[in-house]
Structures are given as C-alpha cells and as structure tokens.
Simulated assay, not measured.
Amino acid sequence: MRIQRLATAGAAVLLLAGCGGSEDAGTAAPATTTAAEESGSSLADQDAAEVVDTAFSALEEAGAAHVVGSIEESGSTQELDLRLQGEDAQGTITMDGATVELVYTAGTAYVRAPAAFWASFGMPAEFAGQLEGQWVLMPEEAAGSFSTLTLSGLVQELRASGGSEITGEVTTGELDGEPVVVVTQDDGSTLTVADDEDAPYPLLIEDEGDAPATVRFSEFGETVEITAPENPVDLNTLGG
C-alpha cells in the first residue's frame, strides 16, 4: 500500500495508490477480533488479493466517491479532499499550509492556489502574484497527468500498485458499528472493506510505510456538478 506524489507543470498533486480505504478525524480504527474463517462471510473467505480486487471493482462500479486523507512525509503533512466521479474530479489538496483547489473535467485541468504556491515551483514573483486567487488553465501536456486523479485513473493505479502480489491476513470486525473485512499486510498497513456482498467498498486505509497515510472513501455513487471555472488564466499568455 502506498500513496504517491505526482508533480505536473508546477502543481503538486497527491495521488492515491495502493489498497484504497479511509479515515477521517475522530474515526476509530476497526476492531478485528473475529477470524475470517469463523465469520461465514463470503468476502472474508477470500484471500488478501481477492479481497483487494473485489474492493477495487466495487469502487469502479460505484462511478463516484468522496476521498479524504493525509500523508506524512519529510516532516510535513499533506492533505486531500476530493470528489471523484467518472472522468471528472474536484476538490482541494493542502501542502505546507497552502490549499490548492483543483477541477478536472472534459480532459482539462484547472488549479487555483496562493501566489506563494506558484513561487515555490520557481515561478517569478511578478507572475506568481498575477495568479493569486485566480483559476489557472493548466497546459494541455499537463492535463493528462491530472487524469490519474479521476475515479477510473485511481482504480487503475490501485490495481497496478499491488494486484495479485498482495498478501496478508484477512480478518473481520466492525467499523462505526458496521461489519468489515480487514486485510493486514506484513508492515502493519491495513485495508478495511465493507462486509457487504452488494457493496464491498474500500472504507479505510492505514499505510504504515515510509510515508504514513490514512484515507477515507465514502459517498459511493453520489454525484455533484463538476464544471469548468469561468475565465481561467491561461499560463501560455501569462505576462503577455
């Protein structure tokens, strides 16, 4: 399980990858006291790789999800709050105290961020100041990288990051009073999945690797209107 960071055209974007799941402030870790073979759950009867694949498939079929999480790396915490639906996405990513807003729709990416954020990537102060509080149309060559933040792109990354190589103990328990199945890997990282034959969604990831992370997936199948911002600044014309 892992969370990767992707930098594209002067805008850093957190990219979820690994076993998908979630945690937000105040949510207790799942209790896993029941052995899988004793639960009678068809999901719990699967091995670790099968549980992960089942969860990824359910996420993909949902068509939409709300993703909230954080990652600790190099002494700093980065946070994300994104709505992913189909080929579109919108939300915020916070890095080093700077909150970056993102909209990705119809294959085009738009970013709104403080001037300090743009300056941190080497943009001259004069130009960075022009972008303060402005929606920015990202160059076409960068938009393709943002597509990995769509639901379909995320599912592809989730599958690529582990797939059939995932091993670990499968147990059952409860999360927020609901039955779950938990895959625990050798490093202590866990994937918690709803123990629901009709909706076995990934619910909680706790990544105990080099960059500890937690992420929540919720609001499966719930959609919002995602539209391109009006009058964005085109980086190609900045300073012109």
Rank of each mutant, 00 (worst) to 15 (best):
Thr184Val: 01
Glu73Ile: 12
Ala64Tyr: 08
Gly10Arg: 04
Ala113Thr: 06
Asp234Cys: 09
Ala62Leu: 06
Gly26Val: 01
Thr92Ser: 14
Ser70Ala: 13
Thr77Met: 06
Gln156Leu: 12
Thr214Ala: 11
Ala116Tyr: 02
Ala55Tyr: 03
Arg216Val: 11
Leu154Trp: 10
His66Pro: 02
Glu141Thr: 07
Glu50Lys: 10
Arg159Pro: 06
Asp187Pro: 05
Tyr201Ala: 05
Ile93Asn: 08
Arg216Gln: 15
Asp176Arg: 12
Ser76Gly: 07
Tyr201Cys: 05
Ala12Met: 10
Thr33Ser: 14
Asp47Met: 02
Gln185Met: 08
Thr190Glu: 03
Ser57Gln: 15
Thr192Leu: 04
Phe217Ala: 03
Thr214Leu: 04
Pro232Ser: 08
Thr27Met: 13
Ala11Gly: 07
Leu175Met: 15
Ala128Gly: 07
Gly129Val: 05
Arg216Ile: 02
Gly86Phe: 08
Thr148Gly: 13
Thr171Met: 06
Thr8Arg: 14
Val136Ala: 11
Val170Pro: 11
Gly91His: 05
Gly122Ala: 06
Ala125Glu: 15
Asp176Phe: 03
Glu219Cys: 09
Val103Glu: 09
Ala142Leu: 10
Val193Leu: 07
Val183Phe: 04
Leu14Asn: 11
Thr227Leu: 14
Asn236Met: 14
Gly10Ser: 07
Gly188Lys: 11
Ile93Ser: 07
Thr223Leu: 03
Val170Gln: 11
Ala116Gly: 15
Gly122Tyr: 04
Val182Asn: 01
Ser161Val: 00
Ala109Ser: 13
Val52Thr: 01
Ala106Trp: 01
Thr171Trp: 03
Met123Ala: 10
Glu37Lys: 13
Pro179Trp: 02
Ala194Gln: 12
Leu102Ser: 03
Leu158Met: 13
Thr223Phe: 00
Val52Phe: 11
Ser218Asp: 11
Gly240Leu: 14
Arg112Lys: 15
Leu235Lys: 12
Ala106Pro: 03
Ala58Glu: 14
Ala109His: 08
Phe217Ile: 03
Thr94Asn: 04
Ser76Lys: 14
Glu73Arg: 14
Glu219Arg: 15
Thr184Lys: 05
Ala160Gly: 06
Val100Cys: 04
His66Gln: 12
Pro139Thr: 07
Thr8Gly: 03
Glu174Pro: 05
Asp24Cys: 01
Pro212Leu: 05
Val13Asp: 06
Leu149Val: 15
Gly10Glu: 07
His66Phe: 09
